[in-house]
C-alpha cells in the first residue's frame, strides 16, 4: 500500500498555546484509521490543521498528502485535492441553499480538475440518488445550509455532502457525539457504503459508537498532542474497558 497521508513531527498552536507536540501518523490509501483519545488531547485540532483552519499555526513538521505539501495550500485547495472534513459542529450559512452550495462546491472541484461545470439536469440526478440513500428530503435540500436542522440531521447532511463530493480522504470529527441510535446507524452505514480501495478515512472519536458500524483497520491513541500507540481494531475494546489511563 502507498501512503495517502503522512504527518511528520507536527507541532501546532492556537494563540500561544501549543496543542500538537510532534505528532506522527501515516494513513494508507483505502485505510480506515480511528483516532481515539480523551477530551482535550488535540484530536479536533489535528483535523482542523489537516484541513487548514486559519486559527491554528503550524510551527514545525510537515503534512504530505498524495506526496504534496498540504501546509502550503489554502483550505479550498486542500478540499479540491480530496480532503473532506465532516465537522463536529457544522456551521450555519443563512440564506445559502444546500443544493446551490453543493453545486458550487462540486463545480469548484471539477474546475480544479480541469473539467467542465456539471449541467443542471445531471446535477439533480447525481444529487437525488445520494439524497435518497441518506433519507434527505427535497425540502431539506432547499433549506439553507445547516440552518434550523437538529443535531442528528446536521450529521446526516455532513455525510451527504461527503457522498456528493467523493473525496479521497474523509475526516470524521466526533461524528457520533450527540447522535441517537437511529441517526448513528444512518451515518455509520452512509460511511461504510463509501469505503473503497482508494478512499481513506480518519475517524476521530472518544468512544466506540460509530466504530461498531465502521470497523477500523487500525486505531491510534492520542494523548497530549501526540500519538502514543497504534494497533489493530482490538484496541477499541481495550479503551472501552479500561479507558485511556493505561496509555
Amino acid at each position: 500500500m502507498t501512503a495517502l497521508l503522512e504527518i511528520k513531527n507536527l507541532h501546532a498552536k492556537v494563540g500561544d498555546k501549543e496543542i500538537l507536540k510532534g505528532l506522527n501518523l501515516t494513513i494508507d490509501a483505502g485505510e480506515v484509521c480511528a483516532i481515539m483519545g480523551p477530551n482535550g488531547c488535540g484530536k479536533s485540532t489535528l483535523s482542523a490543521v489537516i484541513s487548514g483552519h486559519p486559527a491554528y499555526t503550524v510551527t514545525e513538521g510537515e503534512i504530505l498528502f498524495k506526496g504534496e505539501d498540504l501546509l502550503k495550500m489554502t483550505p479550498d485547495e486542500r478540499a479540491n485535492k480530496g480532503v473532506f472534513l465532516a465537522f463536529q459542529h457544522p456551521i450555519e450559512l443563512p440564506g445559502v441553499g444546500l443544493a446551490q452550495f453543493l453545486k458550487t462546491a462540486l463545480n469548484a472541484k471539477r474546475k480544479a480538475n480541469g473539467e467542465e461545470p456539471i449541467d443542471a439536469v445531471a446535477f439533480m440526478k447525481y444529487m437525488n440518488v445520494r439524497a435518497t440513500a441518506l433519507g434527505i428530503s427535497n425540502e431539506m435540500l432547499k433549506r439553507p445550509v445547516n440552518v434550523g436542522f437538529s443535531g442528528g440531521e446536521k450529521k446526516r447532511l455532513e455525510t451527504f455532502q461527503m457522498a456528493m463530493l467523493e473525496p479521497d480522504f474523509c475526516i470524521l470529527d466526533e461524528m457520533d457525539s450527540g447522535l441517537d441510535v437511529d441517526a448513528l446507524k444512518i451515518v455509520g452505514q452512509g460511511v461504510s457504503v463509501m469505503r473503497e480501495p482508494k478512499r481513506s478515512f480518519m475517524i476521530i472519536t472518544h468512544h466506540d459508537d460509530l466504530l461498531q458500524y465502521v470497523k477500523p483497520d487500525k486505531v491510534s491513541i492520542m494523548r497530549d498532542g501526540v500519538i502514543v500507540k497504534t494497533a489493530g481494531s482490538e484496541l477499541v475494546k481495550e479503551v472501552e474497558e479500561s479507558g485511556y489511563d493505561n496509555f
Partner: peptide, 17 residues
C-alpha cells in the same frame, strides 16, 4: 472556512454568503 473546506475559493465563499 466551512465553505472553503468544501472547495470554494475565498471569493466564491464570500459571494455565496
Amino acid at each position: 472556512f466551512y465553505a472553503m473546506q468544501r472547495g470554494l475559493s475565498a471569493e466564491e465563499a464570500v459571494g455565496l454568503i
